[in-house]
């Protein structure tokens, strides 16, 4: 009896191995493909909020009213989505005071390729232009020979992407002030 059982097991072994191999391939494939196919990734959620190349404030995170999970209710949030086919994107902000404000630049698939806080402001201002590599090349070709550009120039690894802005209200009473700081940010197509 045990001999027969062993023989049956031996016959089934290649089938079990094949099943596990299929399972492994499907597992790896679904994990790898998820970022490409997720209908509810950050970019898709932001896309649903409004047009591109403009600052869109996101209502403060409150129970039942959140764009995603794990939000800081103390931070005002705004986004500016871009498609560089429209032209380069210019982002400008005046920084006053010592409250935390940050700008992070994300690709279509939510990789931050650059981030800065208010501490990176030069003479009280943040001035950034996001280009494709080609746009940057032609912008540089038009630069006057002897002067350094006044703005910070970034190359977006993807044509589409978004700027995510956080502005911290250090007490609940300052929530409106924190949101106003982001509403005052300029974000739009360069020369548009």
């Amino acid at each position: 009896m045990p001999v027969r059982r062993l023989a049956r097991l031996r016959a089934a072994a290649p089938w079990i191995a094949a099943t596990l191999m299929v399972a492994g391939i499907v597992h790896i494939a679904t994990i790898l493909i998820m970022p490409e196919v997720s209908p509810r990734d950050a970019f898709a959620r932001i896309e649903g909020l409004g047009p591109r190349a403009t600052v869109i404030p996101i209502a403060p995170a409150r129970p039942g009213r959140e764009l995603s999970t794990f939000n800081d209710p103390a931070a005002a949030i705004a986004v500016c989505r871009y498609d560089l086919a429209d032209g380069p994107l210019r982002l400008g902000a005046q920084i006053a005071g010592d409250e935390f404000v940050s700008f992070s630049f994300h690709t279509r698939d939510n990789v931050a390729f650059y981030a800065m806080t208010d501490r990176a402001a030069l003479r009280g201002a943040i001035d950034v232009v996001v280009y494709t590599q080609d746009q940057l090349d032609s912008a540089e070709a038009q630069d006057p020979e002897d002067s350094a550009p006044a703005d910070r120039r970034l190359v977006s690894p993807t044509r589409e992407g978004f700027v995510y802005m956080r502005s911290l209200a250090s007490t609940p009473g300052q929530a409106e002030e924190a949101a106003a700081r982001l509403r005052a940010v300029l974000c739009g197509v360069e020369g548009g």
Partner: peptide, 25 residues
Amino acid sequence: ASRARDPYAAAALARAGETPFDLAE
């Protein structure tokens, strides 16, 4: 937030729709 995140983290993030902190933030 970086390109160097592992595939599981990337998949979970795409599903959750969160925008994580960059280390500079």
